[in-house]
Nucleic acid binder design. Structure first.
Lengths: 150, 150
DNA sequence: TATTGTTATACTCTATAACTATA
DNA sequence: TATAGTTATAGAGTATAACAATA
């Protein structure tokens, strides 16, 4: 064994990045799972909780407390679907959309911090290589497999 | 938002790689945490549990059941330190060393599978860029921050 | 009868702190 | 008294399955 393989390195750096992101986003009083949900509702509003759960690859029961918390803080809204009243249609509130600006800013700062060791060219190269791996491995853009923990 | 930043991509691909590794290593009836400990004991034998816990960044209490399991399977050995009998000195058994060969094979296959989308040159580039990030971020070689879960 | 959302229960896992033994 | 290892306890978090409302 020379050192550690690329797969281990990706996992190591990835876990570190996730940890740091958790800290940063915690300053906005959010968890990564909440950010993931907010991001999904922001880009594709009006979906039911079941649909969202499927896209996130998480059991539907976990969305309930997640949505509860965001709703209580006035970031997200449960609208009843008039056509099928079993379904909710989740939407961001104005306050929620406002918060997403801060989330985007945080994500950008996080990105720069993690890749601080690289030049712009190298950053682009890294991004491209990782994107190729992600595609080949069948990963859904924007969905973190380790959504699990709060 | 154009797409997703490199930091997110690393975290996403990293979590996926960790997940796949967990599955693979499960075929040897091992968890990632066990592999991490075995690897550490293999490279630096004779250390106490406290010392190992410190290097893994985990509370010492978590090492107890971890070592218990490996000891029961005859992979690891708790030797009493003659000079200070409070301390154990952890060593791999012959069976443990044998198993590590299989672990190394598994890790290599895993590595190739994860980076299947890349050429050899690209693989090397990815490895170098990630290594630079890992060093700059102060990560300890071979230690996974997300050691947590079994 | 099937489906959406919710609740309840059981289970896993972790960590804090108390305990034993050696020093 | 201080440290290594262990055990016990309590807490957080998840998921499986039962439940209510609507279709």
């Amino acid at each position: 064994m020379n050192g550690f393989g690329s797969a281990f390195l990706v996992a190591q750096v990835g876990a570190h990045a996730a940890q740091r992101f958790t800290e940063r986003i915690g300053e906005l009083d959010l968890t990564p799972a909440q950010v993931g949900l907010l991001r999904l509702v922001a880009t594709r509003p009006g979906q039911s909780q079941q649909a969202l759960a499927k896209q996130l690859g998480t059991p539907a029961t976990r969305l309930v407390p997640l949505v509860d918390g965001l709703e209580k803080r006035g970031l997200i809204e449960r609208r009843r679907n008039a056509e099928d009243r079993r379904l909710y249609a989740l939407e961001l509130t104005a306050k929620g959309r406002e918060l997403m600006v801060g989330v985007a800013r945080t994500a950008q700062a996080h990105d720069r911090a993690i890749t601080a060791a690289l030049t712009d060219d190298e950053r682009a190269t890294l991004h491209e290589l990782l994107k190729r791996i992600a595609d080949e491995q069948g990963l859904t853009p924007g969905v973190h497999p380790g959504y699990a923990r709060p």
